[in-house]
Simulated scan of single mutants.
Amino acid sequence: MITYFIIFLLAAIPFLEVSMIVPVAVIGGLPVVPVIIIAFLGNLLTIILLIVFIDSIRNWRKRKKVNEEKNEPKSHQRAKQIWGKYGLPGLAFIGPFFVGSHLTALLAVTFGGTRSKTLVLMTASIAFWAISLGIAAHFGFDFLVKDEDDLGFITRLLNR
């Protein structure tokens, strides 16, 4: 039970998210479906909070930006390019893989996406990435390395 709580927390942390946590947990020997669901919920919770409190976050970023240089980070530049080429749906689905889901949601609303559309598309995107990466990790790892007797490194650590 504590393992799933840790997965939930790690998936909620920006830049770890489902894209890193789901494959590591599955390769570690945890069951695919619970890992996908728990990681999805952890990541989604922080995205919802981010979108709900976007105005406060924007004000904080503006105050912080006064003290920083005007140079825009590469991740923001990539997100702008995706936004310009594919719009909100493209950014919501492509962005999490390149810049992370939290930054993608923040930038999507900042670039002009509505909160409701951003939330719907980010939810779909996080679900897509969690399921895709979970399935890929499960079948890829089982096919290449794992045998029937090997429980995976996380399961072995917990059983000690």
Rank of each mutant, 00 (worst) to 15 (best):
Ile154Asp: 05
Arg63Gln: 05
Ile126Cys: 14
Pro89Ser: 12
Asp150Gly: 11
Ala124His: 07
Gly90Val: 00
Ile154Gln: 04
Ile13Glu: 01
Ser125Leu: 11
Trp129Gly: 01
Ala39Asn: 05
Leu88Tyr: 06
Val32Thr: 10
Gly100Ile: 08
Leu49Asn: 12
Ile135Lys: 08
Lys146His: 01
Trp129Met: 03
Lys62Thr: 04
Val33Ser: 11
Ser125Cys: 05
Arg115Ile: 03
Val120Gln: 09
Gly28Tyr: 09
Met1Ser: 06
Ala92Ser: 11
Ile2Gln: 13
Asn43Trp: 04
Pro34Glu: 03
Leu9Ser: 03
Ala127Ile: 14
Gly100Asn: 01
Ile48Pro: 06
Gly42Val: 04
Leu107Ile: 01
Pro31Met: 08
Ser75His: 15
Val99Arg: 00
Gly90Phe: 02
Trp60Gln: 03
Ile7Ser: 04
Asn43Asp: 05
Gly95Pro: 01
Leu49Met: 12
His76Thr: 10
Gly42Lys: 10
Ile135Thr: 11
Leu16Ser: 07
Phe141Arg: 05
Asn67Arg: 05
Leu41Gly: 08
Ile126Val: 15
Leu107Tyr: 08
Glu148Pro: 03
Ala127Gln: 00
Leu103Gly: 09
Asn159His: 14
Gly113Thr: 02
Phe15Thr: 04
Asn59Phe: 05
Leu41Cys: 14
Phe15Glu: 00
Ala124Met: 02
Lys70Gln: 10
Trp60His: 12
Ser75Tyr: 14
Val52Leu: 15
Lys74Ile: 15
Leu30Asn: 12
Leu121Val: 00
Val52Trp: 11
Leu44Ser: 09
Ile131Lys: 09
Phe8Arg: 12
Ile2Trp: 08
Gly140Cys: 00
Pro73Leu: 10
Pro14Tyr: 15
Met20Arg: 14
Leu30Val: 07
Arg156Thr: 05
Val33His: 12
Asn71Arg: 14
Phe153Val: 00
Leu107Trp: 02
Phe98Ile: 13
Leu158Met: 15
Leu50Glu: 10
Ser56Ile: 12
Lys80Gln: 02
Ser132Ile: 12
Lys85Leu: 14
Leu121Lys: 07
Pro73Arg: 13
Leu151Asn: 12
Lys146Thr: 01
Phe97Met: 08
Pro23Ile: 11
Leu103Tyr: 08
Ala127Pro: 04
Ile94Ala: 02
Ala124Asp: 06
Gly152Pro: 12
Pro89Ile: 13
Ser101Ile: 02
Asp150His: 15
Ala137Leu: 10
Ala136Pro: 10
Arg160Cys: 15
Val26Met: 08
Ile154Val: 10
Asn159Tyr: 09
Ala12Gln: 07
Leu157Ser: 01
Ala105Arg: 00
Leu91Pro: 01
Thr114Trp: 04
Leu16Val: 01
Gly90Ser: 01
Thr3Lys: 07
Val24His: 14
Trp60Ala: 07
Leu144His: 06
Asp55Ala: 04
Ala11Phe: 10
Lys80Trp: 09
Tyr4Met: 13
Ile131Arg: 13
Leu9Thr: 02
Lys65Asn: 07
Val120Thr: 04
Pro89Val: 12
Ile51Asn: 07
Gln81Ser: 07
Gly152Cys: 07
Leu106Gly: 10
Met20Gly: 11
Glu148Gln: 13
Phe5Pro: 06
Ser116Ile: 01
Glu69Lys: 14
Lys80Ile: 07
Phe143Leu: 03
Asn159Pro: 13
His76Phe: 05
Ile51Gln: 09
Pro34Gln: 10
Leu119Met: 12
Ala92Leu: 13
Asn59Pro: 04
Pro73Ser: 06
Thr114Gly: 00
Phe141Thr: 08
Leu106Lys: 01
Arg61Ala: 15
Phe97Val: 12
Ile51Asp: 08
Glu17Thr: 06
Ala92Val: 09
